[in-house]
């Protein structure tokens, strides 16, 4: 039995597409309050793991435990309601909605009546929380804009803000700094560290090595559907298996 404070746990998870194994008996643990990185070459199965964790795919074998309960058989919206939110590798925003509307629709409204009342979905509590998320993500000035009118890095932030609005206890980020410039990546790093300080657990897929090394408490390395290494960033960086499989001779950190 693992430590009870793990938020997400993969136990012998297998995912096959036809004859191809995308994930092969994958085990890993995401402890509460930590930022865990999932790295590996393209096609290693990282996004597949995300799709399994968020319920978008069904597992071929194995078990996925979120806060002590299996999520196997749950639909994506049920997994989301349990407390897992995610962003996408290619940004998926609602093209007709303003930034603010993204937050309102993502925030769960428990009262069915308020859900159908005009402007009922934006009660005081919702508004306060949403304002705080805008503030955290630096989107306050852009609350009224449609995502198409925002630069790419900002659109990523809208996606993160939308995910936060659903009040998750685990946030899955799929390549959040892809397409961001240095400044934007720096801001994102700050934001994620701040979210961790507030107790949010984060699992992140990222190719930007300096970013991952600065951000993560723990890193798992996937290759060909297998976890080939795991440990603290500095351990992973030095692991010869990882070096040869993925990072290259210089550890990928020379740039």
């Amino acid at each position: 039995m693992r430590a009870p404070d793990s938020v997400l746990e993969f136990r012998g998870v297998v995912k096959r597409f036809g004859g191809i194994s995308a994930l092969n008996e994958v085990d890993f643990v995401v402890p509460r309050g930590q930022i865990v990185g999932l790295i590996g070459p393209n096609g290693a199965g990282k996004t597949t793991a995300f799709n399994l964790a968020s319920g978008a795919y069904t597992t071929t074998a194995g078990d996925i435990i979120f806060e002590g309960r299996s999520t196997i058989g749950l639909k994506p919206y049920q997994v989301a309601r349990r407390g897992i939110a995610r962003t996408f590798q290619n940004i998926r925003l609602f093209r007709s909605m303003t930034v603010w509307e993204h937050l309102v629709v993502s925030n769960r409204e428990k009262s069915r009546i308020r859900n159908i009342l005009p402007f009922g979905g934006a009660g005081r509590e919702t508004c306060e929380r949403s304002r705080r998320i805008l503030d955290l993500t630096g989107l306050t000035a852009f609350h009224d804009r449609l995502p198409v009118s925002l630069p790419y890095g900002m659109q990523r932030k809208v996606e993160i803000a939308r995910a936060l609005a659903s009040q998750p206890r685990l946030l899955l980020l799929d390549e959040p700094v892809a397409g961001m410039n240095q400044d934007e990546a720096g801001e994102l790093l700050e934001l994620l560290l701040r979210l961790r300080r507030e107790g949010l657990t984060i699992l992140v897929i990222e190719h930007d090595m300096p970013f991952v090394m600065n951000l993560c408490d723990h890193i798992y390395v996937l290759d060909f559907g297998l976890v080939i290494a795991g440990g603290r960033p500095e351990e992973v960086r030095r692991d010869p298996v990882v070096l040869s499989a993925y990072l290259g001779e210089d550890g990928g950190c020379s740039r």
Binding site: S54, G55, A56, K75, P76, Y77, A80, R81, A85, R86, F88, R92, L93, F94, R95, S96, M97, V105, S106, R108, R162, A163, S166
Partner: peptide, 12 residues
């Protein structure tokens, strides 16, 4: 209407 899959994954 905008993105059914994203809607699903935010809990709708």
């Amino acid at each position: 209407n905008d993105d059914e899959r994203a809607a699903d994954l935010i809990g709708l």
